[in-house]
Design a protein around this nucleic acid. Structure first.
Length: 577
RNA sequence: CGGGAUGUGGCUCAGCUUGGCAGAGCGCAGCGUUCGGGACGCUGAAGUCGGAGGUUCAAAUCCUCUCAUCCCGACCA
């Protein structure tokens, strides 16, 4: 490809709107342009990269036995009402009406559509298992799209759905996809970890996330420094530490704490550490009033609470609700005599029988509270957020809490959709059973961003060879020198004949401009043909990743380029090709 | 949805405090000189100053409303 015939608009300066490195590079290296918040056009260079990623994903999906389909973006509301998600999914489901007033939405995911399809097709256990996938644009009306392709509203996703007759089969499908994902992210040249995850609004019984490690990641994950335990922070198990003190204390006693609402204010006033206090957090869960208790120095993990309650909606109580349930303004709620439907305590609170809590009246707290004696506790459970001080729940070693970008997610759905939407099959006995489903997503466009977050330097992008838009950039230093140009064209054709994708920079620009652009767009191999080199019969080669330069003899160019390319693959830790 | 910020040629931004001819750099077009790490000179094209309303002799600048974008938070495969 000749640059002069291509469309690759590079930017010399960082666009004002781009904050994170991948967003800046995607813009500057001429790969994407923004249409509106969270919605981007892929320019030729971006599309080439996207297609490379998608191709690897497709190859591995096909290898794993999945079959590609293509589903609609516009979906009828009726299907979503049938699955129950029309009311649950929230505002990120973009809803609208067609000319007849029929409810529609833009697909944020395709469980409903695929389940609807398959219930019409699958009649017998003989037709199972099946695994269908697609690579498609999804739309989620995110509250706050940000970071370019990392959290867009419209994005490209590979989503696969498996259908099995029983749990054993579904587990096997899950494992097959899990293994395919390992191969995909390895082939893409990414540094990643697999973590246990919460299944969120997609639902289902268990799931794993594939996280690319990057400082700009929006998720925090808990990774054991010794064993292979790894979990999303929202799922990570918090261990109970410390000695249990079973001694019964004196009876509860009211202390005045005028104007002290927060944990810091109360503990400072009473001159105790925050670990002596119990925080009482009030929530409305599907219409029920619920209190969650955690130690004063802990953070409640709302996802754990939501899962414990099996709630569809979980919202923090409004100040009015707090007043109604506790009889006090915000800041003085406590478990003793609280008017709620359930009180759940973090299991860490079992360790002591003498706590400081709110007194359910303004400007007062209680001390020496024994939760088992003084309050009606519904139960205790793991409710708090894991901290870097917590030990690994499997082996007790230290935990690390790095940031990650979620690029893949596998879910075992079970019968959530097949039961709700009546997708069943007949088994050998002629009995109708619900199909067991799984679903498996990969953020194709997000991978592009994640890749650049991991691979860049001060000069620009560093494309891993498997997903580089071209493998080699061939730079002609003086386009006006006809002999040089002629040789460059011959070289370009020979390299392409060898199977390389080559971008020939034939623009009438000064060398400095070309070098800067070459580093910016970051193709893994750079070949430089200049007048001096041509006179000496050599071609200058540069490895973009290592910066290593070498000279290749034009007389032996095919063999030398091949060796040079193998070295580049090696430097990327990739197998020879 | 709460908090903060920003909207001025294609891009990055100055000008706004204190109202008085719309500017710079980059990019773009032409000419010339350059030519191995984002050259230089000259000439030129290009802007409803986000939008609406208001104050004023006069508004990019002051006031009101509104829209959009970005950042933090809440939220979220």
């Amino acid at each position: 490809m000749r640059w002069s015939k291509y469309y690759l608009p590079t930017l010399k300066e960082d666009p004002a709107e781009a904050e994170v490195i991948s967003h800046r590079l995607l813009m500057r290296a001429g790969m994407i342009r923004k249409l509106t918040a969270g919605v981007y056009t892929y320019l030729p260079q971006g599309l080439r990269c996207l297609d490379k990623i998608a191709r690897i994903v497709r190859e591995e999906m096909n290898r794993a036995g999945a079959l590609e389909v293509f589903m609609p973006t516009v979906q009828p509301a009726d299907l979503w009402k049938e699955s129950g998600r029309w009311d649950v999914y929230g505002k990120e489901l973009l809803r609208f009406q067609d000319r007849h007033g029929r409810g529609c939405c833009l697909g944020p995911t395709h469980e409903e559509v695929i389940t609807d399809l398959m219930r019409g097709e699958i009649k017998s256990y003989r037709q199972l298992p099946v695994n269908l996938y697609q690579v498609q644009a999804k739309f989620r009306d995110e509250i706050r799209p940000r970071f370019g392709l990392m959290r867009g509203r419209e994005f490209i996703m590979k989503d696969a759905y498996s259908f099995d007759r029983d749990d054993a089969g579904a587990d096997k499908s899950y494992q097959t996809m899990y293994d395919a994902y390992l191969r995909i992210f390895t082939r893409l040249g990414m540094v990643f970890r697999v973590v246990e995850a919460d299944s969120g609004p997609i639902g289902g019984s268990f799931s794993h996330e594939f996280m690319v490690l990057a400082k700009t990641g929006e998720d925090t994950i808990a990774v054991c420094t010794a064993c292979d335990y790894a979990a999303n922070l929202e799922k990570a198990v918090a261990m109970v530490r410390g000695e249990r003190d079973d001694a019964e204390g004196p009876s509860a006693e009211l202390v005045l704490t005028p104007g002290r609402h927060t944990v810091e204010e109360v503990t400072a006033f009473l001159q105790v550490g925050p670990e002596k206090l119990v925080k009482t957090l009030l929530y409305e869960a599907d219409g029920q009033a619920v209190a969650a208790l955690v130690r004063g120095d802990r953070e409640l993990n709302e996802i754990k609470l939501k899962n414990l309650l099996g709630a569809k909606f979980l919202n923090m109580a409004t100040p009015e609700q707090v007043r109604a349930w506790s009889g006090a303004p915000v800041g003085f709620a406590g478990p003793v005599g609280l008017h709620v439907d359930a009180i759940w305590a973090d299991r860490e609170l079992d360790l002591s029988r003498s706590w400081i809590t709110g007194a359910n009246q303004a400007d007062a707290h209680l001390r020496h509270v024994d939760l088992s004696r003084d309050a009606k506790i519904t139960g205790s459970a793991d409710l708090r957020q894991v901290t870097p001080e917590d030990p690994c729940p499997h082996c007790g070693a230290a935990l690390d809490l790095p940031k990650g970008i979620e690029v893949g997610h596998v879910f075992k759905l079970g019968t959530k959709y097949s039961a709700a939407m009546d997708a069943g099959y007949l088994d050998e006995e002629g009995i109708t059973r619900p199909i067991i489903m799984g679903c498996y997503g990969i953020g194709v466009s997000r991978i592009m961003a994640a890749c650049l977050e991991q691979n860049n330097d001060e000069h620009g992008t560093l494309f891993p060879p498997p997903i580089a838009p071209f493998q080699i950039e061939l730079i002609v230093l003086n386009v006006k020198n006809q002999e040089l140009m002629h040789q460059a064209q011959i070289l370009h054709d020979r390299l392409e004949a060898m199977g390389f994708e080559v971008l020939l920079d034939d623009r009438e620009e000064r060398p400095g401009v070309k070098f800067k652009d070459a580093d910016l767009i970051g193709l893994p191999g750079q070949l430089i043909l200049g007048e001096k080199g041509l006179a000496k019969g050599v071609l200058e080669a540069k490895n973009r990743k290592t910066g290593q330069r070498s000279e290749l003899a034009l007389g032996d160019v095919e063999r030398q380029v091949r060796d040079w390319w193998q070295k580049i693959l090696q430097d990327w830790g990739l197998p020879a090709s």
